[in-house]
Design a protein around this nucleic acid. Structure first.
Length: 188
DNA sequence: CGTTTTTGACCGGCGC
DNA sequence: GCGCCGGTCAAAAACG
């Protein structure tokens, strides 16, 4: 289906008014952003290798070929990966800015997506999350999980799913901003 | 025993 | 108006 019919032009560079990257702002504070950075670069099985910011046409990752007319060569499963890496240029990193005019959708907060290579889907990002839903993705063998920040009145949401093309890639999407510092979960 | 996960039900938007 | 679909709720199970 038309996953997101929002105007393709409704994107913005990944830097907000304060000069923070969206990665930082989505994690609330720069400290938290640094924490996430450290974790992402850490190749432990609990974390995952950070591949790239990926907030633009990330549906080429998500949408199965039947629902997406992106010309994806079936024998080249790295097409999407190349696409993601191609956006490494900070200027080309875009984030959906579902604000502005038509807010027809149920008041979408700003989103931020990125791709990691990981075996586990629960990536350690410095925040505690409570899972509140899981739905199968149409025409995809992998489900999509929905999380919410466990902190008091923080309503940041997060969704996690695997690439239908490359099962080793995990796509994480944050929605909204944290209103607090990160609270790393206690070491198990 | 408090918190989190699981899982089907439910809901609102949208296309037909 | 109906049905599909993505997203959320909530009750009960699972977990520590």
């Amino acid at each position: 289906m038309e996953v997101d019919k929002e105007d393709p032009g409704d994107y913005s560079p990944a830097v907000d008014g304060d000069g923070r990257t969206f990665r930082e702002s989505f994690f609330g504070f720069k400290e938290a952003g640094l924490l996430g950075e450290l974790i992402w670069n850490h190749p432990s099985p609990r974390g995952g290798r950070f591949i790239d910011d990926f907030s633009g046409d990330f549906h080429s990752f998500v949408d199965p070929p039947t629902a997406s007319n992106h010309s994806v060569s079936s024998d080249n499963s790295t097409t999407a990966c190349n696409t993601a890496i191609a956006t490494t240029d900070p200027q080309s990193i875009v984030v959906k800015k579902a604000k502005g005019k038509a807010q027809k959708r149920s008041s979408h907060q700003p989103r931020y997506s990125f791709v990691t290579e990981s075996q586990v889907e629960q990536l350690e990002d410095g925040y505690r999350w409570r899972k509140y839903g899981q739905k199968p993705v149409k025409n995809s063998p992998f489900p999509r999980s929905y999380f919410r920040c466990t902190n008091s009145s923080c309503e940041v949401k997060k969704r996690v799913e695997r690439s239908w093309q490359n099962p080793s890639l995990v796509i994480t999407t944050y929605e909204g901003r944290h209103t607090h510092y990160s609270q790393p979960p206690p070491p198990t």
